[in-house]
Design a protein around this nucleic acid. Structure first.
Length: 507
RNA sequence: GCCCCGUUCGUCUAGCCCGGUCAGGACACCUCUCUUUCAAGGAGGAAACAGGGGUUCAAAUCCCCUACGGGGUACCA
């Protein structure tokens, strides 16, 4: 089983592309097959610098690894179609020889003229086909000697000679039998005037040459599949199996998720942040938003595929075992950011703190936050990961805890303070000093005894204590937080509070 | 316009191929519960077979039509 992912380096890979790559990857791993990355850069006018590197980095981040590709080489090198350019012409000419294709010399203006003329005659969208072909300048209408002269003297394209009236049927692994009629299809250009192949020629030639057995791609390719099927026939090659994945739709369902939606939607559509080299525009990626690759991959796997069991949280490894094309659905799926967050949260909770540590540490440093001991950061991650959906929430929690509360407090926090509780804090500090076993459990005992002794309810005391110690009105267990804070820091924070709020006795 | 693909809770979907369970799960939402708080957790709730015709004792499931949505219709992929 040989599969491939064949993106075009015209910009950042969006999330739909990641899913296509993912499904190819899952199948390749599951069946012990081979996965090839092929760069389809046959349109030189749409080339975007950095796009290829982006694609590779993004897929690598997701954990999608290839067996062959431009970044790692392989027996089928080169893997960029621009570097395979010389290859395609001979195949195009072979088709001409076999009568499946022909030369065409029409200029862009002439094509435009033809369209206008036929439109005026009442044809809705004129194509280069059996009807219009006889009126155009090509090797089927021009005398042979003129054709030869033109081939030598001017640019030309090679077009596929679409059979007049034939039904093309093929089996789609997801949709079942699909049929098209050739009378609806046109004479697609196979080889462009710059010598580059179009996608249609290049993907068929390369898939054949690289031994690809399964073509898994987006649904937008379904309408051109009959052409590809005919090409395999014309070449007398065995065709691969086809599977066309449902599209990833915008949350409103109004079309496929596209690059343009990135900014308006309020959530990323790219795996990594992308800066447009032309406009300088920046689109935030899932990685930068704080998604774990495991979370993102898990979520997008679920868009259009459903596991046989009732389970939703999967590692990449588990996905390779559970995935199957039979359970891919046919209808387009809308991207639900809330659920994506939830899935990510599940992964965050399962992730050992030790593997979260480097990532949090990295974010900590890029934000130039005050130094923090490894041990303490680790303890904070432990507490925070249970309640965070995205990585930055952990960083933010650790930061807000590590930094001393800003005094005076904001009015909203101030209003939650209980003066009665504050009166008794000095005596609490006194008790804390005598604790031998500085652990959350012991702190809980001491606090409870203190509250009892002072005849104040815990539900009144704890919020006030939390605010003056952490500057937050909610968060993880206060006992645990106090354990991490330590006696000295608690004293310091209490003093800072007391000096601003004028509590007479301080410790 | 034409061609192709699609249509089950707000969303992702199970069930459809091989007609017959209160149409199941998850996210989000609501209620209760636990908790010092916010989350998380636990319990419960509301919520869908696009419409119309057939076929059948029986249809979400098979057939046809309609509507709606999407994709394609380039010397773009």
């Amino acid at each position: 089983m040989v599969l491939r992912f064949a993106p075009s380096p015209t910009g950042p890979l969006h999330i739909g592309g990641v899913r296509t790559a993912l499904y190819n990857y899952l199948l390749a791993r599951q069946k012990n097959g081979k996965l090839i990355l092929r760069i389809e850069d046959t349109d030189q006018t749409r080339y975007v610098p950095g796009a290829e590197e982006y694609i590779i980095e993004a897929l690598t981040w997701c954990g999608i690894e290839f067996d062959e590709g431009p970044h790692i080489g392989g027996p089928n090198a080169p893997y960029r179609q621009s570097e395979r350019k010389s290859l395609y012409a001979q195949y195009a000419h072979l088709l001409v020889e076999r009568g499946w294709a022909y030369y065409a010399f029409d200029t862009e203006e002439e094509l435009e003229l033809m369209r206008k003329r036929f439109e005026a005659a009442g044809i809705i969208s004129p194509q280069y086909n059996a009807i219009t072909r006889p009126y155009m300048k090509n090797s089927l209408t021009l005398p042979p000697d003129e054709v030869q002269a033109r081939i030598r003297a001017e640019p030309y394209v090679i077009r596929f000679l679409m059979p007049r009236n034939k039904e093309v049927r093929f089996y789609d692994e997801i949709r079942g039998w699909v049929a098209f009629h050739t009378k609806e299809l046109d004479d697609k250009v196979l080889l462009k005037s710059d010598g580059m192949p179009t996608y249609h020629l290049a993907n068929v030639v390369d898939d054949h040459l690289m031994g690809v057995t399964h073509v898994i791609r987006g649904e937008e390719w379904l309408p051109s599949t009959p052409l590809h099927v005919l090409l395999y026939e014309a070449f007398e090659w065995e065709k691969p199996k086809f599977a066309h994945l449902p599209l990833l739709l915008r949350p409103d369902g109004g079309g496929k998720l596209s690059k343009r939606d990135a900014d308006q939607l309020g959530f990323p559509v790219f795996p990594l942040t992308w800066k447009d080299p032309e406009t300088g525009e920046v689109s935030v990626g899932f990685r930068e938003r704080g998604f774990l690759p495991e979370g993102l991959v898990n979520y997008i796997a679920l868009l259009g595929w459903h596991p046989a069991e009732e389970k939703e949280v999967f590692t990449l490894e588990e996905l390779t075992h559970s995935f199957s094309l039979e359970r891919v659905s046919r209808a387009g799926a809308r991207f639900d950011y809330e659920k994506a967050r939830w899935i990510n949260q599940q992964h965050l909770r399962r992730m050992p703190t030790s593997s979260l540590l480097p990532q949090v540490r990295a974010a900590w440093e890029t934000q130039n936050l005050p130094p923090i001991p490894e041990e303490k950061l680790s303890q904070l991650i432990d507490l925070a990961k249970e309640r965070a959906a995205l990585l930055p929430e952990i960083v933010e929690f650790a930061r807000s805890f590590h930094e001393r509360p800003f005094m005076p407090l904001e009015a909203a926090l101030e209003s939650r303070l209980s003066p009665e509780v504050i009166q008794h804090i000095p005596s609490l500090i006194e008790s804390l000093i005598h604790i031998e076993n500085w652990k959350a459990e012991e702190l809980e005992n001491v606090l409870k005894n203190w509250a009892k002794a002072k005849n104040i309810s815990l539900s009144k005391a704890l919020p006030t204590l939390r605010i003056l110690l952490t500057g937050q009105h909610s968060g993880p267990s206060l006992y645990k937080l106090m354990e991490i804070l330590g006696l000295e820091e608690i004293k310091i924070r209490w003093q800072a509070f007391a000096s601003v709020y004028g509590v007479s006795r301080s410790v």
